[in-house]
């Protein structure tokens, strides 16, 4: 099993946190993970992408080369990069609250979810990343929901208990939507 992922969004949307949680949860499940960062000069509010490879055996090339089998676009400005970075047979999850005119995919499936709107319903638009992460888990079965929940508690629990509850709610809302979708 080897899954190449890209988690993309605009600065502050929390795509890097999604990637980190996937890595921490995968380690809990005894899997190997590699995360690489985007190159170039980053700026506040600019787009950001975290690349993650999850595997049940030692990982060879750590670089995701426009061959993501699981891509996530949280914002409109990063959508094209994710669309072009998706591999045949892969899945592209996009935030349909912000990406209004998705392109027609050729060879990979595309799943649009209004994660910004869904996040507002559970408390804050800032939890859109957790709704999306839940949806990815529900749809792909990449990792167990419980592993990610534990990783979330480990990362956020001690410092921000109030935010933790909302983020877990968001994660669950996304998970249910992912399983249904």
């Amino acid at each position: 099993m080897l899954t190449k992922c890209m988690f993309s969004g605009s600065g502050g949307q929390g795509s890097a946190l999604m990637a980190k949680l996937v890595c921490l949860a995968a380690i809990r499940e005894g899997l190997k993970v590699v995360m690489t960062q985007t190159y170039g000069i980053e700026q506040r509010g600019g787009d950001s992408t975290a690349y993650v490879i999850v595997s049940d055996e030692p990982i060879g090339s750590p670089i995701v080369e426009k061959d993501a089998t699981l891509a996530v676009a949280l914002s409109k400005s990063i959508y094209d990069l994710c669309f072009e970075g998706s591999a045949p047979g892969g899945s592209l999850f996009y935030n349909s609250s912000l990406v209004e005119e998705p392109r027609q995919p050729d060879g990979f499936e595309q799943i649009g979810l209004p994660v910004s709107d869904m996040a507002m319903k559970v408390g804050s638009v800032r939890a859109a990343n957790m709704v999306m992460l839940g949806a990815v888990l529900g749809r792909s079965g990449l990792l167990r929901l419980e592993s990610v929940e534990e990783a979330l508690k480990e990362t956020m629990g001690a410092k921000k208990p109030a935010l933790l509850e909302m983020n877990i709610k968001a994660l669950h809302a996304g998970y249910e939507a992912g399983r249904e979708g």
């Binding site: 380690i27 993970v33 960062q37 750590p62």
Partner: peptide, 9 residues
């Protein structure tokens, strides 16, 4: 430097 800055288990 790419390996150095890669994050992994």
């Amino acid at each position: 430097g790419v390996t150095a800055q890669t994050t992994e288990s």
